[in-house]
Design a protein around this nucleic acid. Structure first.
Length: 157
DNA sequence: GCCAACGTTGGC
DNA sequence: GCCAACGTTGGC
């Protein structure tokens, strides 16, 4: 089973919004980056772990955990002219943007800040730390274990 | 297919 | 709000 990290702006949609959905699930729409899309389309499987990372906020960092609950969904916002994610070049016959659905698992008591993540030499592999702007990125097993224990230990303090 | 210009992201 | 990093666009 693989693990991933999803960036999101909590002002728009954060871990609390996911937790407050009636079924605690949400289609992860609005990703408009081919590399990120390819991860969702080609590599994700139901049951994969998914960190929810909050960006562009007071304390950027990992806020919670979710899991992939559906794969291979067509992002409906690409066909909606009113949506900021509208893509006039995409057609229903050949949709360009594929998404997954995430299901809420856990909110960490405290955010695990990017600052702390950067300080750990064992997790400098992920594009997050490398200043990439990828909004969806893979997290290897070792990194996942470290990040999860950081997040849970931190929540005890 | 190169690459300069431009727009966006996102931490600070 | 600044600006570095990076993806995308479009002229050639």
């Amino acid at each position: 089973m693989a693990a991933w990290l999803f960036k999101t702006e909590p002002d728009t949609f954060g871990i609390d919004d996911l937790a407050n959905r009636p079924d605690k699930r949400e289609g992860w729409d609005g990703v408009r980056n081919y590399q990120a899309r390819n991860f969702m389309r080609d590599s994700m499987q139901v049951g994969d772990d998914a960190f929810i990372y909050h960006s562009s906020c007071k304390v950027p960092g990992i806020a919670g955990l979710a899991k992939v609950s559906k794969t291979g969904l067509v992002d409906p916002t690409q066909f909606n002219p009113e949506s900021p994610y509208f893509d006039p070049k995409s057609t229903p016959e050949n949709p360009r943007w594929i998404m997954v659905e995430l299901e809420y698992v856990e909110t960490f008591v405290n955010i695990t800040p990017l600052k702390k993540i950067k300080e750990n030499p064992n997790i400098n592999v992920i594009p997050l730390v490398n200043k990439s702007r990828l909004s969806v990125m893979p997290v290897n097993e070792k990194e996942f274990d470290i990040l999860l224990s950081m997040s849970r230990n931190h929540s005890l303090s």
